[in-house]
């Protein structure tokens, strides 16, 4: 099993619904975020291109945040989801320094927190909160090892990229272009 997410940059309008849904679902404190929206503008007028991306932890296959964690609080579970055990985390911040995507944040309670792919929902057969709430249906979540999953299909059909592949972490967010 290999959980992954595909984000359709052609459909995303940057409404931030996914961000708000995540904050509500996961009790993310004000100002902090497990997911966020990036607006990327490239080129010079009149040839300008804009891309909007809903971003979160890439649940990297070769996750440096897990490797550098001195206590094992950061770990990978079945399906490749990267999680933090809050009561094993000493708050050394090594994992935040180690993440090329700045996808983690120091929770005001001391431990480090991040996107969990809403594994508590996924285990019940539901979609992650951000996926469930997206009004343009631009987020696709599922098992890449299952060719019939939503995410496998779009990744097979569409052109995609991953962010900063040169950081060498084998990220698992696929941005459809």
């Amino acid at each position: 099993m290999r959980y992954a997410m595909a984000i359709d940059t052609k459909k995303c309008v940057g409404c931030s619904d996914c961000v708000v849904a995540c904050q509500t679902e996961n009790n993310v404190p004000m100002g902090f975020a497990r997911d966020w929206i990036v607006e990327s503008v490239a080129g010079t007028y009149p040839r300008v291109e804009m891309e909007i991306r809903s971003e979160r932890c890439n649940h990297c296959e070769d996750a440096p945040c897990v490797r550098c964690c001195p206590t094992g609080a950061s770990h990978i579970i079945e399906g490749g989801v990267v999680l933090v055990k809050h009561d094993a985390c000493i708050g050394c911040m090594a994992c935040i320094e180690a993440c090329p995507y700045d996808a983690r944040y120091p929770h005001p309670d001391g431990y480090v927190d991040k996107c969990t792919f809403c594994i508590h929902r996924v285990d019940k057969g539901e979609d992650p909160a951000c996926v469930a709430v997206c009004p343009t249906h631009c987020l696709h979540f599922g098992d890449l090892d299952d060719p019939n999953s939503d995410v496998s299909k779009v990744v097979a059909e569409r052109k995609w990229k991953v962010l900063a592949p040169e950081a060498g972490t084998k990220p698992q967010l696929y941005f459809l272009m």
């Binding site: 931030s16 975020a33 966020w36 990036v38 490239a42 080129g43």
Partner: peptide, 23 residues
């Protein structure tokens, strides 16, 4: 121009606009 902006109001102390967690 090549600009990448976080537009969802993310403002995490020590992380945004750039990392400053180790003093």
């Amino acid at each position: 121009m090549n600009e990448e902006l976080i537009v969802s109001g993310r403002n995490i102390p020590g992380v945004d606009p750039h990392l400053h967690l180790w003093h």
